[in-house]
Simulated assay, not measured.
Amino acid sequence: MKKIAILISIATVVLSNNHALAGEHGAHCLNMLSGEMKNCRVIVSELNNSLEMNFKSDKLQDVNMKLKGNQITEISTGEYAKKRTKETIGASLVLGPLGALVGLFAKQDRTQLAIEYVDYQNNKNVTMIDIPTKHSEPLMKDLESLTGLQIRNTEGTGNSE
């Protein structure tokens, strides 16, 4: 019985240390095909050097995204994030749904993060994560730790323009 208790204690310590290497966050992520924000799970893993955005809906599994930390070129929040997202995807998406969505979330206590990255064809792209503000700080710290970048912010914390 003591051996089982010791194994459980060791497993708890090992698993809790691995958890520190991967942060998981509930959020809304930009579906690049429709331009709509949908429920997703954001996983930032230093161990795998990756940011994963996995949609909760079974119908959206084909638009899940996984980026290596070195693919991410900039992370921004606040008005700057909205501006960068519109500038980058404006040519490829109709901004009607995205523009309305950004306006809707702006009225709530939420934080939007624009993640600019270079894809595997060397094209510059952006995606967006929307998370309740009260849960945003751990995600932002995880992203900064993963990428070594400081988040640009026009609302008083971090870098400003």
Rank of each mutant, 00 (worst) to 15 (best):
G90N: 05
P97D: 12
A91N: 06
T85E: 06
K68M: 15
L113S: 05
I4Q: 11
N70R: 04
V118R: 09
A22V: 09
A81V: 03
N18I: 11
M65S: 05
Y117V: 09
E36M: 05
H135T: 03
T88K: 07
T73M: 13
N125D: 10
Q61E: 13
G26Q: 14
T73G: 10
T111Y: 04
I151M: 12
L149R: 04
L98F: 09
T77G: 03
N39Y: 10
E24D: 12
E87H: 02
M128I: 10
P132K: 09
R110V: 03
A81M: 07
F105R: 00
S45T: 02
H19D: 06
L95N: 03
D109F: 01
T127R: 02
Q150G: 01
L21P: 00
L113I: 13
E46I: 12
I72N: 05
E52A: 15
V126F: 01
M128H: 00
D130V: 13
N31V: 11
G35D: 06
Q121T: 07
C40P: 05
A114Y: 04
G78T: 01
G103K: 08
H28F: 11
G158H: 10
A11M: 14
S34F: 12
I129F: 13
E116P: 02
L60K: 00
L139H: 03
H25F: 15
R41V: 15
E137Q: 09
L146P: 10
N54D: 10
V42Q: 08
G26P: 07
E24L: 10
C40Y: 06
A100F: 08
S45Q: 11
L30P: 02
E116A: 13
N31C: 08
Y80P: 00
T85S: 09
A11N: 12
N125V: 00
L98R: 04
E144D: 09
K82N: 13
A106C: 00
T133G: 03
N64W: 05
A114W: 07
L98E: 07
M1I: 01
K134S: 13
D58K: 10
Q112F: 05
P138S: 04
G96N: 12
N64P: 03
D58M: 08
G69R: 04
N159S: 12
I43H: 00
